[in-house]
Computed example of a mutant assay.
Amino acid sequence: MAHLALYKLELLDEFESRTDAWTFADFERRLSQLRPTTNYHDAKGIINAAHKEGGWPKAVKQYLLTNYKVHGNVSSEFTDTFADVVAAMTDAEKQAWGVA
């Protein structure tokens, strides 16, 4: 099990508990507020690490699906994580997000 820095845990916990329609850009912006030297590449690593740890499923799913919705795909760093998330979705969810 990987060990995530405290600011990463706080970020993931914050977004896991949110009930609004936040996007990957909100996550990346908040990360930059917590750690000004970070960027979207760091956010990608945090999302993949969260998935590998098996925690924060809502945050991982929301980040990836909103990213997919904007770009029409996900970057290669997310191939396995995205495949796992999509595999766990219902057919109705897949259709709603355009990943069916």
Score class of each variant (00 low, 15 high):
Leu9Cys: 14
Leu31Tyr: 01
Asp20Cys: 10
Ser17Asp: 15
Arg35Ser: 02
Gly72Pro: 01
Trp97Pro: 01
Gly54Ser: 11
Asp26Ile: 09
Glu53Leu: 15
Ser17Asn: 12
Glu16Ile: 12
Thr66Gly: 06
Gln62Gly: 09
Leu34Thr: 03
Val70Met: 12
Ala87Pro: 02
Lys69His: 09
Gln95Tyr: 08
Arg18Cys: 12
Leu9Gly: 03
Lys69Pro: 00
Tyr63Trp: 14
Ile46Pro: 00
Tyr68Phe: 15
Ala49Val: 03
Trp56Phe: 15
Phe24Val: 04
Val74Ile: 04
Leu11Val: 07
Thr38Cys: 04
Lys69Asn: 07
Ala43Gln: 01
Thr81Lys: 02
Ala50Trp: 02
Pro36Arg: 00
Asp20Gln: 10
Val85Cys: 05
Ala43Thr: 03
Glu93Ile: 10
Met1Gly: 14
Gln33His: 06
Asp42Val: 05
Glu77Lys: 05
Leu64Arg: 01
Trp22Cys: 12
Trp22Arg: 12
Thr79Val: 10
Phe82Met: 02
Asn39Gly: 05
Trp22Glu: 12
Gly54Pro: 07
Phe27Trp: 07
Thr19Ala: 12
Ile47Glu: 01
Ser76Lys: 07
Asp84Phe: 06
Arg35Asp: 03
Glu93Ser: 08
Val60Phe: 13
Val99Ile: 08
Ala21Ile: 09
Val60His: 07
His3Glu: 10
Ala43Asn: 02
Ala5Tyr: 13
Tyr68Asp: 02
Leu4Met: 14
Tyr68Leu: 03
Glu28Pro: 01
Lys61Leu: 13
Thr81Met: 04
Phe27Gly: 03
Glu77Pro: 01
